[in-house]
Design a protein around this nucleic acid. Structure first.
Lengths: 357, 357
DNA sequence: TTGAAAGCGCTAACAA
DNA sequence: TTGTTAGCGCTTTCAA
């Protein structure tokens, strides 16, 4: 039985190839100053020995790690996995590796993850997902990140305008306004909102956008928000409450698609037809949204692109002022919205398939 | 403006606290042999300096990294994100961090990721997702992993029986048999299979299970497999082909839920009613499956648990023989399956809500 | 209980 | 073109 043997070191490669440590190092890192013949031989020896350089030693000795840390709220939420996918693809094409951690929407846990990423000296840290409206919740994170940036680390966030770092800003307000206009133009005036947990900036921004959009309606809109978790189950619970407490409502706005899916499920179990008896809209356009039945009217935010943009920001040297990159949004009108029933068949069906905003 | 300053080192902490390097190290790592008073003071200084230990130096000097590497095929596929979620949660409760990489179902890319994980000296590597039936595709990965294990690294795989390492084995065959029996008992005999790409062991195992289940039917089953990508779009394409080439079919089996969602979309666009005109089933029971309309009949594989089990295997010392851990499966009968129309209303509706297998 | 010092594996500056 | 050597920041003997 083979004894547990340490992994081969660069020194082992050098000896086996009959060259010095420095020559071996140069050969493998593809630097100039080595004859091609020697370099070739060293590479061959390294391969046959199964040599893989120790990143820790390499990092300690000098350079960067080529590692990017990504912190998301929930790994198994499509919103974040699509962002992650964008980050990973972009990173791969820049020969960077991504280390993904998740915070479970808990500032404490997020702090711990930031600490771990800093400890492992990743070249950059990307934090995706809503910030917290409570400033004390991230006092220490902010400090840590500032110090990290100060000592050369790069930081970018997605959707957290409250941190003074490079940021990709999802068009949450604009998306809210677009949805409000869509429902108003269909004739809805009594609307309920399945809103996510308090304290998340994303939730508040989307609500603000909706309020802006509603403000212009004649006759005016009556909108009621019901708070719940920012998840499918949260959507289901919110819908139950809306159904029982607000029977006059003709449309439900869920503040993300996950909640919208929960809303649809609740309506189905109550045999409330969508869109005939109730219109439903979401936010994000996660990829399953169009595959639902009825397919979900929602606002598309380009998650993968957002991830890619964030990654690319971290590759550039820091700017004097933090960069802000706004994203596009696109209202996707599908089968879950229609004119309210009371307006009946005499109203022409206002439906365009994809309206660019 | 603060100059770009290097991060504080343990030496800085030690000096600021007026102790030696060794004492500082001991204080922070909570070792015995330091007076509590001194330890306290050192910890205080470390905190106020925002000191975070450099993992690379620490790793190089001795110990483990407390990092686990996880390789998945597709980060934004719910099957994998649910597995990842299981791994991450279990890891967190064991104070481990997880680094997630993705291979895009490409053996080359997978090899590169394995190399990177080994280079960063993660304590363990978990590879999730189907293996490749072509043995040459992973010749080198196998070699690398063997060497890594030999030098003390831990390896566990999810769903790759072809590697001689600790493995969590999804009940793919049994799941296939359960689905076959379900459709047979409903009376289906002309069945199409939307199968994933060739060369994936998961696909072949599920097909084998289906064939086993079909073998016992009287009258016999006619089953046709259509190959396509193992994704939603692949499911859609397969369904289109099935609709045009095999109009006699009364049920479509998709080899995973992603494909099933694509199949449902294709059927909807052809106005083929599910389950009245066509039954549809999937595999996996990703969390959105029950939220679809009609809700999807599928076989539940406990993805999060699988991830958790794999993580725990890597925490144990290696066994003489590779461990094999089989998982449960559970047929989830929902609204996408029914008796074929030709049997009409005279057949009693065999439907139980959750049948344990 | 504390400190001094020898590495861990690698890179890069300096010599030859 | 090649080799020698001084660290990188930490842990861990070994001495005091």
């Amino acid at each position: 039985m083979p004894k547990s043997r340490a992994a081969p070191r660069l020194l082992d490669v050098a000896e086996a190839a009959g060259v010095s440590l420095a020559t071996a190092s140069r050969s493998l890192s593809g630097q100039s100053g080595v004859s091609e013949a020697v370099a070739q031989r060293v590479r061959g020896v390294a391969q046959s020995l199964g040599y893989v350089a120790n990143v820790h030693a390499r990092t300690l000795a000098g350079g960067l790690t080529s590692m990017i840390g990504l912190i998301v709220h929930e790994i198994d939420d499509p919103y974040f996995s699509e962002i992650a996918s964008g980050v990973v693809h972009a990173a791969t094409s820049h020969q960077r590796l991504v280390q993904i951690s998740h915070s479970g929407r808990d500032p404490e846990q997020e702090l711990r993850q930031i600490r771990a990423l800093i400890a492992s000296r990743v070249d950059a840290i990307i934090i995706a997902g809503s910030g917290y409206t409570d400033p004390t919740a991230q006092q220490e994170s902010r400090l840590l990140l500032a110090r990290y940036a100060d000592s050369g680390g790069r930081v970018a966030v997605i959707g957290r305008h409250e941190l003074a770092v490079d940021a990709v800003l999802p068009a949450n307000k604009e998306a809210g306004a677009a949805i409000a206009e869509h429902l108003i133009s269909l004739g809805h005036r009594r609307i309920a909102i399945a809103a996510g947990t308090e304290g998340l900036t994303t939730v508040e921004d989307r609500l603000t956008g909706l309020a802006d959009g509603f403000g212009q309606a004649h006759p005016p809109v009556t909108a009621t928000a019901v708070r719940s978790d920012f998840t499918r189950e949260g959507g289901r619970l919110a819908a139950e409450q809306i159904i029982s407490d607000h029977p006059e409502v003709t449309a439900i706005i869920a503040l993300n698609d996950a909640m919208a899916i929960g809303v649809l499920a609740a309506l189905r179990s109550h045999r409330i037809a969508v869109p005939d008896q109730m219109s439903v809209v979401g936010f994000d356009d996660v990829s399953v949204a169009e595959a639902l039945a009825p397919s979900l009217t929602t606002v598309r935010l380009p998650m993968a692109t957002m991830g890619q943009l964030a990654l690319e920001m971290t590759l550039k040297p820091p700017a004097a002022e933090p960069r802000r990159k706004a994203t596009s949004h696109q209202l996707m009108v599908r089968d879950s919205t229609a004119a309210p029933r009371s307006l009946g068949e005499e109203t022409p069906l206002l439906r365009d398939n994809e309206r660019n905003v």
